[in-house]
């Protein structure tokens, strides 16, 4: 059953031919989503070796994210925050609800928002705990872990196929903490143009998403 679902997913992407692995069994989910078993090992038995591998694999991305976000001087602190939160919340990770990459993104994003608040870099904020505002991802109806993993992977590959101007705008919004308005100011483009680039990009990515 899982397998038939996969067959539905895959033909929608032009990248399917280059990834015949996606046709294989659910055990391959681990290969597609190699960080998921590490998070689970931390959850189940507080496995420090797995935790170290997570740090080695994912830590450099967190640092890179922090630098992009303009938090160079706090980059390693953010890495620490995120890793501690991964340790604390590992049991809440459920691969039938989100891929490891989605979950880790949410943890990282929330830690960044938390840190900005602590550093008082934000103003005029309402006082409510961040976790209530930005909850961790979880779908209403659990899908197969394999689907989430494959979907994450396809999305990553579809990103490469986006026109550079669209990809650029999306990356600025997600990775550089910029609103559409700020991206527009920076690129000296009308706000409408920025919004439509994002929308076009999302439509292209959604083509895959919607029909899953």
């Amino acid at each position: 059953m899982v397998k038939t679902n996969n067959v539905v997913v895959l033909p929608l992407s032009r990248t399917m031919d280059s990834h015949p692995k996606a046709h294989q069994t659910a055990e391959d989910a681990a290969k597609v989503d190699h960080l998921a078993p590490l998070i689970e090992a931390v959850a189940q038995r507080q496995d420090r070796a797995a935790f170290r591998r997570l740090f080695q694999d994912f830590g450099p991305k967190i640092k890179s994210y922090a630098i992009k976000q303009g938090m160079l001087e706090y980059a390693e602190e953010l890495v620490q925050e995120v890793m501690v939160n991964i340790w604390r919340r590992a049991r809440q990770f459920d691969r039938s609800k989100a891929s490891a990459s989605t979950w880790l993104f949410a943890i990282t994003r929330n830690a960044r928002i938390d840190m900005l608040r602590k550093l008082n870099r934000v103003s005029g904020e309402v006082h409510v705990e961040n976790d209530f505002l930005w909850s961790l991802p979880g779908e209403d109806e659990p899908t197969s872990a394999f689907q989430h993993a494959v979907y994450s992977k396809l999305l990553r590959e579809s990103l490469d196929e986006l026109p550079i101007d669209q990809r650029d705008v999306i990356a600025k919004v997600y990775l550089e903490d910029k609103s559409h308005q700020r991206v527009a100011n920076e690129l000296e483009l009308p706000l409408g143009t920025v919004k439509s680039r994002v929308r076009l990009a999302l439509q292209k990515l959604k083509v895959i998403l919607q029909e899953v």
């Binding site: 740090f55 830590g59 450099p60 991305k61 640092k63 890179s64 994210y65 630098i67 992009k68 980059a75 390693e76 890495v79 620490q80 989100a98 891929s99 990459s101 989605t102 979950w103 880790l104 993104f105 949410a106 990282t108 994003r109 991802p137 979880g138 779908e139 989430h148 979907y151 994450s152 999305l155 990553r156 990103l159 999306i170 990356a171 997600y174 990775l175 999302l202 990515l205 959604k206 998403l209």
Partner: peptide, 23 residues
Amino acid sequence: QKLSTLGGALLETLPCEAIDDAI
């Protein structure tokens, strides 16, 4: 959820920044 997955995908496209093991 989908937009967060996109965030995850974008995060993975970032270059790796070396971190001191002492961290």
